[in-house]
Design a binder for these strands. Structure first.
Lengths: 247, 247
DNA sequence: TCGGTCGTAGTGGTCGGACCACATCGGTGG
DNA sequence: CCACCGATGTGGTCCGACCACTACGACCGA
């Protein structure tokens, strides 16, 4: 796959790629390649930092930077005193960084993100309407009633998040659920939500949630898609006018 | 705002976390917070590694790991000999890592990713049908004809990618375009595409591309959405049967 | 004066070593 | 048999040195 058996008695394995970018970048690519190539399975333990560094012929410092980067990306997981492991490479592991995108985006980007969320959320809700089990539905209802039973913004937000999370989970596409999770991350949600709810949108939000739940209970994908799209669309439109007013 | 007059373990220093996780993790959060809080603008130059390390009271090594991680995430950009800068925080900068997700996903995850691509691609194509300019349309046509004029798989793939890239760009949602870009990254596309095209799907692909182009030229969003969904759906369905056959 | 050249200071990139904090496992003694 | 404890190995942190590159200004020749 990547060997270059050209002479070179000294170096054997992995000693290819002349000198692209930084050595750390090279190390990152090597490890990613090992995983993509199946030489490292999810959950498997890697050699020690010192070993890895020696194998690629770089210092431990540089190797640590590479490992740290992959850790932040959700590809690796370092356990102090134990070792370095490949994550399960589940959607949740890898897409956690999606929240960073949402948190650092501003202005027009926020609207774009909401547009994407509208598309995905409506699709997920439609799928959920067709697949949701009774247990999952009752879980959704739990958060719905809890959300309507309090007026503590923090609590409302928490149940709101859980409400949509349950629906996304019921859609059966973990990757989609993970992305939606990122698009609803605490900070992102808080930034937009705060202003939105301050304008007395509680009642409207409540109606929209009720409509979504009704569609789910009726197992009506079309109604579910429409109500979810409208729900996100309301926030989206509000944000759009906000940006127009205060550019 | 947040001076740290050396030492003083008593802890004051506006806005600082006690001692969660690793110091590197703390540094990452601090820098992210600085950007999210507007204290660091896109394109702005950061203090030197040595300075930053001193300010947060950590070693340069740890600070370097933090910077490296943020660099890989597309938040920062290090220029050898010059300094460290905040990226423009455009969709492309931050979502580059999305390609990693696509490259490392396997099995059922691949289908999920294609499902997401189908949803987003069809939406983007529909939007493009309503907004595309004549110039952009001719650009799309260029890649379409070039794609049909050769039988070199590599070249076909390149023009295929460009074809969809142009359409995504015409949709006017940079973030969506960036995500789709990641979902069509070279390696991801190559892994799925290769097998798909080996089964003589060229003709079918050609027809589907023609249909998409026709819808765009007619400025017909509905037709565009349908043809794009069908296009991705074909690949998706093929992959689904593949996984069923060889689990 | 103008233009290019060359030093030099400052920056990120790399390295090696040292020590600390924690997890794990085996042996020990009850 | 179990609880304890120490040894060992691992990642986490720090330090100091040096290299490679960039930026900028002083210098020199035309």
């Amino acid at each position: 796959m990547d060997e270059t058996p050209t002479g070179a008695p000294g170096a054997e394995t992995a000693a290819n790629a002349p000198q692209k970018g930084t050595v750390t970048h090279r190390a990152i690519e090597q490890i990613k390649a090992m995983i993509a190539g199946g030489r490292l399975e999810p959950g498997q333990r890697l050699p020690t930092e010192r070993d890895l560094a020696a194998r690629l012929g770089i210092s431990r410092s540089s190797m640590r930077e590479a490992i740290r980067a992959l850790t932040v990306l959700g590809v690796l997981e370092a356990r102090h005193g134990s070792g370095i492991y490949v994550t399960q490479l589940e959607a949740g592991d890898l897409l956690e960084t999606f929240g960073v995108v949402a948190d650092l985006s501003r202005g027009p980007r926020l609207v774009e993100l909401l547009e994407i969320r509208r598309v995905l959320e409506s699709t997920a809700t439609a799928l959920a309407a067709a697949r949701i089990t009774d247990d999952q539905l009752s879980e959704v209802e739990k958060h719905l009633t809890a959300m309507n039973a309090t007026d503590d913004p923090e609590e409302i937000l928490a149940h709101d998040l859980a409400f949509h999370r349950e629906i996304a989970a019921a859609a059966g596409n973990e990757t989609m659920a993970a992305i939606l999770e990122g698009l609803s991350s605490r900070t992102f949600r808080a930034r937009v939500w705060r202003g939105y709810q301050e304008e007395g949108a509680f009642a409207r939000t409540r109606r929209e949630h009720a409509a979504i739940h009704r569609a789910l209970a009726a197992r009506d994908p079309e109604a579910a898609r429409a109500s979810a799209a409208a729900h996100v669309g309301e926030v989206e439109e509000w944000l759009r006018t906000q940006l127009r007013a205060v550019p």
